[in-house]
Design a protein around this nucleic acid. Structure first.
Lengths: 184, 184
DNA sequence: ACCAAAGTAGACCAATCTGTCTACCTGATA
DNA sequence: TATCAGGTAGACAGATTGGTCTACTTTGGT
């Protein structure tokens, strides 16, 4: 069955997100999941392939979670509130689907893979594009400048919440957007 | 003399920033710098101590660079322009003092060290506090909300420029601040 | 002139890393 | 019933990791 494959991905994602991709060895993943090494290399060619699978899994989880928070917004103002309120639930470990907050898995993983042409770096880039597209989809009308502003504030909030442990970062973004009535 | 010590720090910082702290081994630093292992461990107790020294060096470089760009601003508007224009020169590799852009060394290093109580994570946190304080110092009057906005946008710009290779991220921040006349 | 600190080269250690391999077991399907 | 993908355990290989150590040389200040 593919259940072992899935268990490997789940375990890898959990550990990778928790400790960083380079800090987690194959053997640790095998130990935690209770799966044999041969089985891992039957399903994945290399550690990199497993990392990509974990990134993909996280991408799916994150996008499903994000979309569930944005979908019922009827105005741009509501969309903005939903977005940053959702981030706050994430930062405060109230978003069970995303696990204990340890920053953005894709930003963190990018930091560990310098080569911007690696598959891993490219995947992280595409994740950010997807997230941007989703937020844009729920805007009442195309508005690249507002979209840029929301994405930049979002990235700033995630980074700030993680590095400086400022759990209010997303709420501050809300106050900021409230101040500038830009194109709302 | 301490010249060897300094050479070690310079080499370590260069390699750490380029490839990530966990991807660079002690032996690589020794090879590049041409310094003996005994000498390294004479000056530093451990790799972690060397990392902390490299972080400190980078902190000094960055703050000196930042301050040089902000100091002659006479209005808040000018300060904001100086800040984000400076970031753009960094992103486009026109800030020689900071080396080829590879994101924020402190964000990247935080991503590699999960434990928020580690000395390294704490140092990264304190760097961000210092940068915030410097920007605040040059505001015409204390304005925590504006300061929050600038810091969040700044973090967002750095992260976005690095992960998605969007070199215009800082310029977008400028357009955004131009739109909202918040407390200027 | 002397002495301690700072430096050299590099062997060595134990641990860990990714990845390969042998030998065997299990269960579903043709 | 035969077959084959998927699974097990774990030894093994080859490289690399951070760090210690010995034995020796260079250098600068008193």
């Amino acid at each position: 069955m593919t259940s072992k494959r899935q268990l490997l991905i789940d375990t890898a994602l959990q550990l990778f997100y928790e400790d960083g991709v380079n800090s987690v060895g194959i053997n640790q993943i095998l130990k935690v999941s209770g799966i044999a090494k041969k089985t891992l290399y039957h399903h994945f060619n290399s550690k990199e392939a497993l990392i990509l699978a974990a990134l993909s899994q996280r991408n799916n989880n994150f996008i499903r979670w994000l979309e569930s928070h944005l979908k019922n917004a009827t105005t741009d103002q509501q969309l903005i509130e939903n977005l940053f309120n959702a981030l706050t639930t994430w930062f405060t470990n109230s978003a069970a689907e995303l696990g204990d907050f340890r920053g953005c898995f894709f930003i963190n993983t990018s930091a560990e893979f310098c080569d911007p042409n690696s598959e891993i770096a490219k995947y992280c880039q595409s994740h950010k594009r997807q997230v941007r597209a989703i937020i844009g989809k729920y805007l009442s009308s195309p508005n690249p400048q507002l979209l840029d502003a929301l994405c930049l504030l979002k990235e700033g909030a995630i980074t700030t919440a993680y590095v400086t442990n400022d759990l209010e970062a997303a709420q501050k973004c809300l106050w900021i957007t409230a101040k500038f009535k830009i194109a709302l």
